[in-house]
Every structure is written in C-alpha cells, then in structure tokens.
Amino acid sequence: MSSLSEDPGALLTAPNVESGAAHLKLRAKRLLLGVSGLAAIVLAWWVGVALVSRHSALAAQFGPVAAWRTLPALVTEDQLFVHVGASLRRIGVGLVWAILLGVPPGFLIGRFKRLEIALSPALQFLRMISPLAWMPIAVMSLGVGDPPVYFLLTFAAVWPIVISTAAGVQQIDTRWVQLGESLAATRAEMLWHIYVPGIAAHVLTGVRLAIGILWIVLVPAEMLGVNSGLGFLILDCRDRLAYPELMAVVLVIGALGFLLDSMARLVYQRFGSVRESE
C-alpha cells in the first residue's frame, strides 16, 4: 500500500502542495514576462538613441547607458533622496486631502439620488478641467512654494475618489441596509458596520487611481517655484544641460511610480478583496 494511503493527512496536503507549486510557477512565468517586456523597452530605447546619435552626438547623452552611469552622481552630488522625499511628502499630503475632501461628498452623492442628479453635471464639468490649467490661478492665489502644489495635487486626485465612493454606496446590497434598520441600528452603527465595509474596496480603487494621477501631475506641479522635488530636479538638470542626469531622473520617476502603484495594489488585495468577499 502506498504511503499516501497509510497517511490520511497526506491526501489533504498533496493537493495543497500541487496548487502551491502551480501558483509559484505561474508567478515566476508572469515575472519573467514582465522583465522581458521591460528589457524590450530598454533595448528599443538603446537602439533608437544609437541610430539618432549617428547624426547628432548630443543624442548619445539621452541613452540608457549614459543615464545609468550618471545615477551615482545624481545620488551623491544632487541629493536625489532629498528630492524623492520632498516629492513623496507632497504626494502624501495631496492624497490625504483628496481622501478627506472626496469620501464625504462621494458618500452623500451615492446615498441620495436627487443630490447625485443635481451635482453630477457640475462634478463632470470640473473633473474634465486639467489640473495644470489651474497653475496660474494657484500661484496668484497661494503664492509660490508648497501650497499651490498641494492644491493642484488635491484637485487632481479628488475626482476618482468621489466617483468610486459614490459607486460603492450605490452598489451596497439593500438587504444589509434593511437588516440594520430592522435591528434599530443607530446612524453611527449603520455607517461603521454596513457602509464602511461596503465601500472600502471602491474607496481603495479610487485611491489607487488617484495615486496614478498624482504622480503624473506632480512633476509639472513641482515647477511652480519650489526648490526641491523631482520636478525641480528635472528643471535643474535641463538648465545645467546635464542631459544624462535628466534621463536618470526620468528613470527614477518611472521606478517610483511603479512602486507606488504596486504598493496600492497590495493594499487593495489585502483589504479591498477581503471586504468584497465579506
């Protein structure tokens, strides 16, 4: 008789081991495909710069090799981590303000149909205005420095949070609401035990979308008279004609944006998927 039949526990663990191995194999395959895609992009970048540099020596400074070589100097001489910290701080402040200003109206819009009908045209109108269009007004109203940057980032990030929150409220199962009302739950209990779990996944989706928008708006917003941040560093490299450093900063911006989105995705998988399953 086989060892599996002698050990009943093995019958239970064997399928789990097989599924775990299959999951690891799938993750390794996806990782390999992702790395291959990035390598293809870098290769196309290198080939393109090599072809253009035959006619212009300046083009060679925009290649991946030059950017990689200048990265250590960017860290030591240009204080890259200081600029990264300033940019991440502004992203954090803008995101917090967007959540504070976006979740309550989104909840009310999703909860009351008449309010949604009344406000939807205005919200869609404001949402379609590029945040960068407010740059002159922000500078004239708030001056130079961090305040106009915070305003632009908050304005850019608030709309996906409002829309996602409203959608989450509208998709809550009415039977849960009726159950809470039949049990004479207070407004605070209804909010905490029914609405918050019901909209958590949608709010996290809105936050992830907002992070992507924030990262795109951040670089031009940091060109509004601040003396730190990745946007400022882009301008500084341009003014010094340090094109390899400029391309290195572009790579850093892409890498940090990728990491931020990955972190937001992990948070959603950890909390949002659990809320949806409940």
Rank of each mutant, 00 (worst) to 15 (best):
T165F: 00
L218M: 15
I117R: 13
I109W: 08
S3W: 13
Q170Y: 05
V203I: 08
G168A: 02
W176S: 04
W134H: 10
G110S: 05
V65P: 06
A44L: 09
K29E: 12
L152F: 07
A73P: 02
Y195C: 01
I172G: 03
L153G: 04
T174P: 04
Y243T: 06
M1E: 12
A221P: 06
A39Y: 01
H193A: 10
A200P: 00
S87F: 03
R90K: 02
R240C: 00
L246V: 05
E18T: 14
A122M: 14
A156W: 03
L119S: 00
S120C: 02
L31D: 09
T186P: 00
L246M: 13
V82T: 08
L71D: 06
S3V: 12
I253C: 06
A73E: 12
W176K: 07
L235W: 05
E77Y: 08
S2L: 10
A166F: 11
V196L: 14
P136D: 04
A185C: 12
L214K: 05
A221V: 11
P147R: 11
V149N: 06
V274E: 14
Q124P: 08
A21K: 07
Q79G: 11
E278N: 12
V177D: 06
R90F: 00
F125L: 15
R30D: 11
R127S: 09
V267L: 15
L58C: 02
A66I: 04
H23E: 15
K29H: 13
L259E: 09
V103E: 01
I253Y: 03
Q178W: 12
D236R: 12
T165N: 02
S141A: 14
K25R: 15
C237W: 00
R270M: 13
M140K: 11
A39Q: 02
L152Y: 05
L38D: 01
L12T: 15
N16A: 13
Q178K: 13
G206T: 01
R111L: 07
A28S: 10
W134F: 15
K29T: 11
W46Q: 14
S130L: 04
P64T: 08
V103Q: 03
R187G: 09
V249H: 03
